[in-house]
Amino acid sequence: MTNPGIDPTFASALRDRLLTAVAEPPRPHRRLSRRLGATASIGVVLAGTGAAFAAGVFNPPGRTSETPQGTAVAAAHAGTVTINLGRPPKSANGVSLTLTCLTPGTFAFPGGTLTCTTLEMHLPATDRQASTTVAIPANHRVTVHTSQAGVWSLRASYVQQTTTAWGVNAHGQTYGVINSHGTPDLVAVDNGRVAGYVKASDMACASGGDVANPAQAVAWDKASASRDISIPLYRSNGTTIIGTFTIGSAHGPGARTVRLSATHLACAQP
């Protein structure tokens, strides 16, 4: 029996799609924080380790909830367009924005940038979105910047955000989630098996927070490619260890996880 070859029409189209995807620039942002003022670097660190401090059953203090105020605005446009959101209700203190790309391209809007590739055009809309909540703009307008060929849709609604207070343990340490007020002493995380808190100082150190100059940054990048760092996971009392939390995205045959205390990082020393 002769072994038939692959359908050339199918193969050619597949090849084109793949090569287009390879040549497209990587997207700088995907999911954006839904919290006012949350720092992007922390969000990236946690997302990269598969953790979520705002997830599910764990309900740490300091969380922010949103309640829609007024009517949402939804529109689809091509190219750079400014949208008038109208006057905000008095009760609103933020604007929730969800941007969806309808063609490949890079789309900048308040709070971040969304880049979509050709391959992703076939994903559900929820996989081609970036969501964020920002402070109410002074002129009540939001601009989406993109090329003339870029087609997108935006849903915007005024919201009222309310943030609960962080907890304070017996040692006077604040604990909870990172929010618009900053970072508590003990930051809520979930390592996939157990939820708890890590010391903000440990997290900063394991994330490269002690880098003081470009040479150190280069050395950090090199080390991080093959090494993840685990830090202790505590109860809210800040002393009872209940597990570890791993920071990093090392990959490849030599990838390994080391304890923060076993590194030579200056910030790891007591």
């Binding site: 692959i6 090569l19 287009t20 390879v22 497209e24 620039p25």
Partner: peptide
């Protein structure tokens, strides 16, 4: 991100994989 590099791999192994 070099499409030509990916094309080399794709063209070389498409038939074998299929």
């Amino acid at each position: 991100g070099d499409a030509e590099g990916f094309a080399v791999v794709f063209d070389r192994y498409l038939d074998r994989v299929y």
